[in-house]
């Protein structure tokens, strides 16, 4: 007993201190530093190759401008054009679409997970709508709502909705029967059962889908803006292609990549926080 309790004690002490914000921050930073350093090696190599390709004219600068040219283009777009405005337009669409889509998905997913009747009611309709890609909806929705933000928000919210809905439903259905039995033994009411047992048990599955849906939403906004509308990063990309402004095109691509990276990282951290009770959980 004595040697087991020693090791466990250390773990429990650590667990007890996790609640302190200072400690949590410290571990968070420590956790990020190592992968960040190794993770910078490849981007650096790519940057060097890119510069070399420009310097030694491996590729026509019209098709691949030098990194410095791209930096200058970035600065010009930021100061002389309205890059920040376009950037915020895209962020706004993704943010709203993600919030509306996932909120509706959680609500209906929980309802369908808890009641077969609700699932049967929505099942066939949802399964059909689900198979029409969001982008295929866009032309029709644009006819209804115009080329502004609402049409894009609706279409992307639809794409966010389904993965979250399905995972919420599955997460709830997969709750171990043992836990339901335990709730019965403890005489929990239905509401207590949902709040204390079913939702937490479904949370890992829900969090995975939220993270996936956030990334998907960001990817789709670029497509949606490219197809319709006159603002946003997606619009800039397709305009840059039409005008052969490769430097501007690359600026947009890099921004899109970095924002996607940031979205995924923050979703990962949120996931880790919500699921801190999971043993050895790494995402």
């Amino acid at each position: 007993m004595s040697n087991t309790s020693d090791t466990i004690e250390a773990a429990a002490v650590e667990a007890a201190t996790v609640d302190l914000p200072a400690h949590a921050e410290a571990t968070g930073r420590r956790g990020l530093q190592l992968p960040n350093l190794t993770g910078f090696i490849l981007p650096f190599i790519i940057l060097v190759l890119w510069q070399a390709a420009a310097t030694y004219k491996w590729i026509d600068p019209v098709f691949l401008p030098a990194p410095l040219t791209v930096m200058t283009a970035f600065w010009k777009m930021l100061t002389k054009q309205k890059l920040a405005f376009d950037f915020l337009a895209s962020i706004n669409i993704v943010g709203q679409a993600f919030i509306y889509g996932s909120a509706a998905a959680l609500l209906l997913g929980i309802a369908a997970g808890l009641s077969r009747k609700v699932e049967e009611f929505f099942g066939p309709t949802f399964d059909t709508i689900r198979h029409i890609p969001g982008i295929a909806w866009l032309p029709l929705i644009v006819l209804w709502l115009g080329i502004g933000a609402p049409a894009k928000i609706l279409v992307i919210a639809k794409s966010v909705f389904f993965p979250v809905f399905l995972n919420t439903l599955q997460g709830i259905r997969n709750v171990e029967k043992n836990y339901i039995e335990l709730a019965k033994v403890l005489t929990l009411t239905r509401w207590q059962l949902i709040r204390k047992v079913i939702l937490p048990a479904a949370m890992p599955s829900i969090m995975v889908s939220l993270r996936y849906a956030a990334g998907l939403a960001w990817a789709l906004v670029v497509v949606a803006e490219g197809l319709s509308g006159l603002e946003g990063l997606g619009f800039l990309i397709f305009r840059a292609q039409g005008l052969l402004l490769t430097d501007q095109l690359l600026v947009c691509m890099v921004i899109i990549g970095l924002v996607g990276f940031a979205i995924d990282r923050s979703m990962f951290l949120a996931q880790k926080r919500v699921l801190k009770w999971k043993q050895g959980y790494d995402g």
């Binding site: 309790s5 466990i8 004690e9 773990a11 429990a12 667990a15 609640d19 801190k276 009770w277």
Partner: peptide, 15 residues
């Protein structure tokens, strides 16, 4: 006592 805030995965089987 002392393990009030521990999660189950932090406990040994006996605990």
């Amino acid at each position: 006592s002392g393990f009030e805030k521990a999660y189950p995965h932090e406990l040994s089987g006996g605990m």
